[in-house]
């Protein structure tokens, strides 16, 4: 565990908390893509199948449970409790366009052809693109609330910090995982345009509005 990995995990946790708090305190999930949240729940479910078979540390197990619980709590808030506020007209991304290629690729390019390993790989590929419905929704409406921008910034920072962690681990331990690293780079690149808008607009107190 190094500072970049810990920072990544905490950014991820912060993103999840920001999202839950936003929905809970405003009693609304307007502007949030339920499709992306479904993909994140699917990601965590597929990745943490090893929760009971591969013990790494108490820290890892606790975080896995927290991520899983938060993912399903978010889905519950969006699709049950505050369903009326869910902006489904703008959340039109087709999930099968992301799930099927991620599943196909996981079957072909993986570290080992076993159920747990293919599911882990699927989760890595799916996570890389899981934010697309959310970014698509922001581009469709042309804007995002500040709190949604903070959520996206924290969520994007998480994988960016993991990349630094992987570079660090490569040099300090000789550890590398090509699948996670390449997918992590793709994931981070998807946020670049958003990062630019966040830094140039939101941090200066303006609303995130896309150029017309």
């Amino acid at each position: 565990m190094n500072i970049f990995r810990l920072g990544g995990d905490l950014a991820h946790l912060l993103a999840i908390i920001i999202l839950l708090l936003k929905i809970w305190t405003t009693r609304s999930c307007a502007g949030i893509s339920g499709k992306s949240q479904i993909l994140f729940a699917l990601t965590f479910t597929a990745r943490y199948l090893d929760l009971f078979t591969n013990f790494v540390s108490v820290y890892n197990s606790v975080m896995k449970v927290v991520y899983l619980a938060a993912a399903y709590a978010t889905l519950y808030l969006m699709y049950v409790k505050f369903k009326a506020t869910y902006d489904h007209n703008h959340d039109t991304f087709r999930l099968e366009f992301l799930i099927l290629p991620a599943a196909g690729l996981a079957l072909i390019i993986n570290h080992e052809f076993s159920i747990i390993e293919v599911m882990w790989t699927f989760s890595i590929y799916l996570e890389a693109v899981a934010i697309l419905p959310q970014l698509f929704m922001v581009s469709k409406t042309g804007e995002a609330e500040s709190i949604t921008s903070h959520y996206l910034f924290a969520l994007g920072s998480y994988r960016a910090l993991y990349i630094v962690n992987w570079v660090y681990r490569y040099y300090s331990e000789g550890f590398y995982d090509m699948i996670a690293t390449l997918a992590g780079v793709v994931q981070t690149v998807l946020y670049c345009d958003f990062f630019y808008l966040y830094i140039t607009k939101v941090l200066k107190g303006k609303k995130l509005q896309l150029p017309a």
Binding site: D9, H12, D50, N54, V56, N60, Y67, E117, W120, D177
Partner: peptide, 10 residues
């Protein structure tokens, strides 16, 4: 390499 994949990250 045929070592078991080691996923110690989240």
């Amino acid at each position: 390499d045929d070592a078991e994949p080691d996923h110690d990250e989240l």
